[in-house]
Design a protein around this nucleic acid. Structure first.
Length: 594
RNA sequence: GCCAAUGUGGCUCAGGGGUAGAGCAAUUCACUCGUAAUGAAUAGGUCGUGGGUCCGAUUCCCACCAUUGGCUCCA
């Protein structure tokens, strides 16, 4: 594919950059179509994106909904048919600003002001449309062959909440129609994996307006998975020397003033409540509670590290627009722990946390993740605890540990917690934006605020360092992730129903009941389908609706031979077994969580 | 919170100014059945909530609530 560079040269595009040039050019063509249909529209940014492109546009008082898209798309097709040539020219800064002002493109004019003094300011033109841009672009509009406008949304100018919200028109573009079709198919499949859809059909959790928004409730089947996850992670933690505690879901406002959370996050906490002139909040996190548990008694350096863990209920007043099923609610349960360590122990403890994270990921087959070292933005004097020396020390300590461990990570500025840097492990859900699953944060700040101490070898009082960490993140979010990864086909040990007993007819119902009862007594989660239906129907519903790992089919043959027939979800094969043999095999597998 | 869209029986969805429809699920009856849907019948909804326009609203308008897709935020 030929492309037009901003110095006017036409070059052959490297294969790997083709798609981005195509998508970026699609944004320009969309802008041209919009300008033809809405002459009063003014443009902000219009970049290529992951799967396509978008353009942020100020339509003035005109409301643009999704019903406006077909006409714009039609106009784009017309433009590609017109096969307009892309042309490029450069203007001196002042002329460029004037040109943009003249055309009412105030956002573009403002953008020129943000560019470095020596920046070349170039314009790409196709037909009647001119856009300030660094390019490169396709040479003729006909090169754009497969695209589609997908949805509209709002987006703040320059991504800043204080600025005006523009209308963002989103589209996808690919090299060919086949690629576009494949993408659309993929979107459909992702929707089918959405944890909210599966959670509803599998009766894992629910929400209700009368309970309140962002407050999902786990139903018996969902809570079964929850409890298994809780047992699983606590077992791992106990082996690593964690001690589990139970602390209340409220705390005094003073507790959060001490920690500094009150100053930073008051607006995202449920409002303060006053009882008998004492002020409380629903707790948004557990660090302060665990700090006070540490402070409950004096500590020697010999006691450290002390690892306090809790499956802890938290409440955060998340903005309504950010709520998403059990992935992000206003109540959630963190798989939280705070490790109180000496400075010398930092490396070993971070290392142990990182090992635990990847050990857990291995157990769940999680391979698609991204590690981020989240650092402070030194220019942000509001968000971050002010202590340059502390930050430099903490950040380089964490970076060094991660590097020594051979973890590959990217660094992101301004993503740290207010009290310290962190390692975040991020994953991509079926639908929507990436989020953090696991985190490990290095904190030199809160222990000092709470005046935590230990007596060192030389008899002097020292301040411990704290590692905040969450492996499953919140159980809620982890479950959301698991649902989407497994499509609801949970491994045996997590399956809400592990065995479904299916009598062929009423003649074998009594025996089936006995088998069912026996399985349950052996600690296996079994259900009996005693509906008056054909066996084929029962198998279909156990497979399709509930994705049950094992079906035990009981007919007159099994009754007379005192056996059971076991159908495996993986293979769809049915084999004869004895009840005792099946029970022990199953118990072993469940115990080993394989 | 902001921008936009959506809201019809338990679930998935159709319809549309003259007080509602399908499939699945449920219930009942018949069948007693061998590995991905037996048949028939019945029941179930003041069409998110509250206002307004109209002879008449679930359908049009407004407000609110919830949900969804984005933006901002995420200790």
């Amino acid at each position: 594919m030929k492309i037009l560079m901003n110095d006017g040269h036409v070059a052959e595009c490297p294969q790997e950059e083709e798609i981005e040039v195509l998508r970026h050019s699609a944004a320009h063509i969309m802008a041209q179509a919009v300008k033809r249909l809405y002459p009063g529209a003014h443009f902000g940014y219009g970049p290529a994106t992951d799967k396509g492109f978008h353009y942020d546009i100020d339509f003035g008082d005109v409301v643009i909904g999704e019903d406006a898209l077909p006409a714009i798309e039609q106009e784009m097709k017309k433009i590609t048919k017109e096969n307009l040539q892309f042309k490029v020219y450069e203007l001196p800064r002042e002329e460029a600003v004037n040109l943009m002002r003249e055309r009412g493109e105030t956002y573009k004019a403002e953008h020129i002001g943000d560019l470095p003094d020596d920046a070349r300011i170039t314009f790409f033109r196709q037909g009647d449309y001119i856009d300030m841009c660094v390019g490169p672009h396709i040479t003729y509009t006909k090169a754009l062959k497969a695209f589609k406008l997908t949805f509209v949304s709002g987006a703040y100018w320059k991504n800043d909440q204080k600025n005006k919200m523009l209308t963002r028109i989103n589209g996808v573009a690919f090299r060919s129609q086949e690629e576009l079709d494949a993408y659309e198919q993929q979107v459909q499949e992702a929707k089918a994996r959405d944890h909210r859809r599966i959670g509803k059909t599998m009766k894992l959790f629910m929400t209700d307006d009368l309970i309140g928004k962002g407050l999902p409730m786990f139903l018996p089947k969902g809570y079964t998975i929850w409890q298994e996850l809780e047992n699983y992670i606590k077992e791992k933690e106990r082996l690593l020397g964690y001690q589990h505690v139970l602390t209340p879901c409220v705390g005094t406002v003073d507790l959060y003033k001490t920690s500094g959370h009150w100053d930073h996050y008051r607006d995202n906490m449920f409002p303060m409540m006053e009882v008998e002139s004492e002020q409380f909040v629903l707790r948004p996190m557990n660090c302060p509670h665990h700090m006070m548990i540490y402070a409950n008694q004096p500590h020697s350096y010999r006691d450290l590290p002390i690892r306090i863990g809790e499956i802890a209920h938290d409440f955060r007043f998340e903005p309504s627009g950010t709520l998403k099923g059990i992935e992000r609610g206003r109540h959630f349960c963190q798989n939280d722990a705070h490790l109180f360590v000496t400075p010398e122990q930092i490396k070993a403890e971070v290392s142990s946390v990182v090992d635990l994270i990847f050990d857990v990921y291995k157990d769940f087959g999680i391979t698609d993740y991204r590690c981020v070292l989240s650092l402070r933005d030194p220019d942000d004097k509001v968000k971050y605890h002010q202590d340059d020396a502390m930050w430099e020390h903490a950040e380089s300590a964490l970076r060094e540990v991660l590097t020594d461990l051979g973890i590959s990570f990217t660094e992101e500025i301004g993503e740290a917690a207010f009290y310290g840097p962190k390692l975040d492990v991020n994953v991509q859900p079926a639908v929507g934006a990436e989020y953090t699953l696991s985190t490990c944060q290095l904190d030199f700040c809160l222990p000092a605020k709470f005046q935590l101490t230990y007596i060192d070898r030389d008899g002097s009082e020292k301040t411990p360092v704290v590692l905040h960490r969450a492996i499953l993140g919140s159980l809620d979010r982890f479950m959301a992730y698991l649902i989407e990864e497994t499509k609801g086909v949970f491994p045996l040990w997590l399956s809400p129903v592990q065995v479904k007993v299916l009598p062929v007819s009423e003649k074998s119902l009594d025996y089936a009941r006995k088998v069912w009862d026996d399985l349950r007594r052996a600690g296996i989660r079994a259900e009996l389908d005693d509906r008056d239906e054909k066996i084929g129907y029962k198998i279909r519903s156990a497979r399709q609706d509930e994705k049950v790992p094992y079906m035990v089919i009981i007919g007159e043959k099994e009754v007379s031979e005192n056996t059971i027939s076991v159908r495996d979800r993986e293979t769809d094969l049915t084999v004869a077994d004895t009840l005792e043999g099946f029970k022990s095999k199953l118990a072993d597998r469940i115990k080993s969580r394989k």
